[in-house]
Write a protein that binds this DNA or RNA. Structure first.
Length: 413
DNA sequence: TCTGGGGTCCTAGGACCC
DNA sequence: TCTGGGGTCCTAGGACCC
């Protein structure tokens, strides 16, 4: 037997949030539905209806629709019926309301999506043990050594996984199988929804080169625009450029990577485990707030963000020592500030204090639409304890001083 | 009536150390 | 008296992804 050919799958759940919602509200099947926003009043009305008539008993007319929405939310997911109207992810809800006013608008329910996310991933792991988590609704799977992973280029195993996921969750997914992650990711888009597509190395020119450069995971709007200015539109156009020329225009790292990608080369392994680098909380206000005029309100939001963040860290068992803030002004421009402290922490007061110092270094004349707090340079709490277990006394004192001066920061706003 | 809330990685300059 | 260079950490911003 010769060595097995590397076969990597990318699995993407179809319209994940929306599909989970349709499991609860089957009466909405086939209708344009979008998930997003978050209006307390409408959410409560919906909850009251659930209590009264049961989920599936809510009449279609009783659901909130886009037409009635006022606020600053965006669409996170749209059903395929809604996509017909040109609405999709990241579109502002007010804008979407003009395209499809009758679309039903459901609030985001992350807890529910996380539940199904765990379920479909556990199902995959029972079949194929080498899986990389890429967020709530997608994964990479290494098919190479899995029984059936080589049959029909991986199609047989892909079908098996697709069926297992559907049987367990009632949800469909699309799978691409290819020689590497880069191509697998593109391939999973080929037959959406509920599709499978298999790409071999020899298919590069016929299946990959005609695609727009933007389809490469890692080429975003900016790079795409620049490529277009250079008259490069397809991946084939990109592959026709020399490595040197690409490095000249996009820099050493990006240029070389583009050259590899365009030629279908990617040797990144399927990464089973990864540790978080940072954890953050942010919020966009219902209306823009002014640091002076809305001092009390901003201060309360700021403190609440720090407390939630501390809770997240503690629950997940991490501490960090780089505390940062993020601001977005009413013109949508943003700034960040951060500060590294002497000791790892997950303490709300310490975070609040340090973030408060960051805030003092930022211009606050203009009104704000967003405030965020971040903790980075993370370490597992146990590892940090070990690391800091024989720390000089002087440092311990400074921590107490820092925590004691919280009162002063409270007067910030 | 524009534009959410998480994240990751890269770049680039300055400080500071060897 | 001058001339280096490498390495690491910190900070700010930006591109990109789900």
């Amino acid at each position: 037997m010769s060595a097995p050919i590397r076969r990597i799958a990318h699995l993407d759940m179809d319209a994940f949030y929306a599909s989970v919602e349709l499991l609860r509200y089957p009466q909405l099947k086939g209708l344009p539905v979008v998930i997003g926003g978050g209006r307390r009043a409408a959410d409560e009305a919906l909850r009251a209806l659930q209590d009264e008539r049961g989920l599936a008993g809510i009449p279609v007319e009783a659901f909130p629709v886009l037409r009635d929405y006022t606020g600053r939310g965006v669409i996170t997911t749209a059903t395929y019926a809604a996509r017909q109207f040109g609405v999709g992810s990241a579109l502002g809800l007010m804008k979407a309301a003009r395209l499809c006013p009758q679309a039903i608008l459901l609030p985001v329910d992350f807890d529910e999506y996380r539940k199904y996310s765990r379920l479909f991933k556990a199902t995959i792991l029972e079949i194929a043990p080498l899986m990389e988590d890429r967020g709530v609704d997608e994964v990479y799977i290494d098919f190479t050594e899995v029984p059936g992973g080589q049959r029909e280029g991986g199609r047989v195993l892909a079908r098996l996984i697709q069926k297992a996921v559907f049987d367990r969750t009632g949800l469909t997914c699309s799978i691409g199988v290819a020689p590497n992650k880069l191509i697998a990711k593109m391939a999973s888009e080929f037959n959406k929804p509920n599709g499978i597509s298999v790409v071999h190395e020899a298919d590069l020119q016929s299946l990959i080169w005609p695609l727009a450069c933007r389809r490469i995971n890692g080429i975003g709007p900016k790079a795409d625009e620049k490529l277009a200015r250079l008259h490069i539109h397809t991946i084939g156009d990109l592959a026709a450029q020399s490595r040197e020329w690409l490095i000249e225009h996009f820099g050493k790292a990006t240029g070389a990577w583009m050259h590899e990608a365009a030629n279908g080369r990617d040797d990144r392994p399927v990464a089973l485990e990864s540790e978080p680098v940072s954890i953050s909380r942010e919020t966009t206000f219902d209306r823009d707030l002014h640091a002076v005029r809305d001092r009390a309100e901003l201060g309360a939001i700021f403190t609440a963000l720090c407390e939630k963040l501390a809770g997240d860290l503690q629950r997940k068992g991490y501490v960090g020592k780089t505390i940062g803030i993020k601001l977005r002004y009413d013109d949508f421009k943003g700034v960040t500030r951060d500060q590294t402290i002497a000791h790892y922490t997950a303490d709300a007061k310490t975070i609040r204090h340090t973030a408060g110092l960051c805030l003092k270094r930022v211009p606050l004349a203009q009104r704000l639409r967003l405030l965020g707090v971040r903790v980075g340079s993370l370490l597992k709490a146990a590892e940090a304890r070990e690391l800091e277990s024989n720390v000089p006394v002087a440092h311990t004192v400074s921590t107490h001083l820092a925590t004691d001066s919280i009162a002063a920061t409270d007067q910030l706003f």
